[in-house]
Design a protein around this nucleic acid. Structure first.
Lengths: 165, 165
DNA sequence: ATGCTTGCAAAACGTTTGCACAGGG
DNA sequence: CCCTGTGCAAACGTTTTGCAAGCAT
């Protein structure tokens, strides 16, 4: 049970984080545990501020700086994955449990549809090979209209008044 | 000669911008012309600050705010395209002249390799169809090691000390 | 003449950092 | 114990905005 991609339960994730920190000589402190716990309770996509808010809700006081310093650790150890939408803040999602996927964002309602990316991975290595580039990761984001919005607004190209997330 | 994707010369681009503005009741002012001219002289990828610097170099004084207000207009009218790398600033590139393409960024030296995206466009509509999503645009960015860096550093996964652009 | 546009400076925004103090190994 | 980690607040860099003055139509 060392590969995080095979891990599902919160306890296993916590253990993985502890081991990751110990192996690198980084301390498994209370604030870092709190951040991890808060992150485990969040789903879908969230940013640093939402983590901070989740902590405040649980009466777990952790400084903003600590949250910003811990999230990269969680990314680096494979608990979280950075997800960059077209906004200035960095978003995160759980990197364990479900397989790799990419996102489609509805221009109108902001809805996010996830899709598995087997074909994308295949395509990316084909392209890499063609250009002598060793591909390590990718970001593939589609923008458009979800089913509901496409009905309401068949030829919409204008951005919606407000977008979520 | 109305489709900007078929337009190549600076004069045609300027004309397209003028028409775009007129059609929307926005004025074709001197500062906006200056920004366009500066942008036409820049190549590859650039951000707002570089536009500002290019203007300063040519003794064309345009306020920072005006640059920030003009760039979205140029994007909207199809002269520029937003290119988001994993940095906080927004980068732009010319949206006319050459066909659509995506980018591979070398994790180590920051080099950017462009590749045509026919297969990507095909894949994106296939995925969209599968999920009842009307895809309008995409962003496909590959990260990895370019040929030179892959030789120097065959198993590099650590980010380089500094990245360009 | 009217009202969009400009430029400046200040605000806003998410994120990072300096520093004195606390706490883990 | 020592040295790392914490929390606060202040700094940061990019982008946005308020506002008085300027200029195009």
């Amino acid at each position: 049970m060392s590969k995080l991609s095979d891990v599902h339960g919160p306890d296993e994730v916590r253990e993985a984080f502890r081991v990751y920190l110990r192996d690198r000589g980084i301390k498994y402190t209370t604030p870092r545990q709190k951040v991890l716990d808060a992150v485990l309770d969040l789903h879908h996509h969230f940013d640093a501020e939402q983590v901070l808010y989740a902590l405040k809700e649980r009466d777990l006081k952790v400084g903003k700086a600590t949250v910003y310093r811990t999230l990269p650790l969680l990314v680096d150890c494979g608990v979280l994955k950075e997800v960059r939408f077209d906004v200035k803040q960095t978003h995160y999602e759980h990197a364990f449990g479900e397989g790799p996927h990419d996102h489609m964002v509805c221009r109108r309602c902001g809805r996010i549809v996830e899709f598995a990316s087997d074909e994308v991975v295949e395509l990316r290595s084909r392209i890499g090979r063609r250009h002598n580039f060793h591909v390590i990761s990718h970001r593939f984001q589609l923008t458009g209209l979800c089913w509901d919005c496409a009905i309401v607004c068949p030829v919409a190209t204008m951005p919606a008044p407000e977008r979520r997330e």
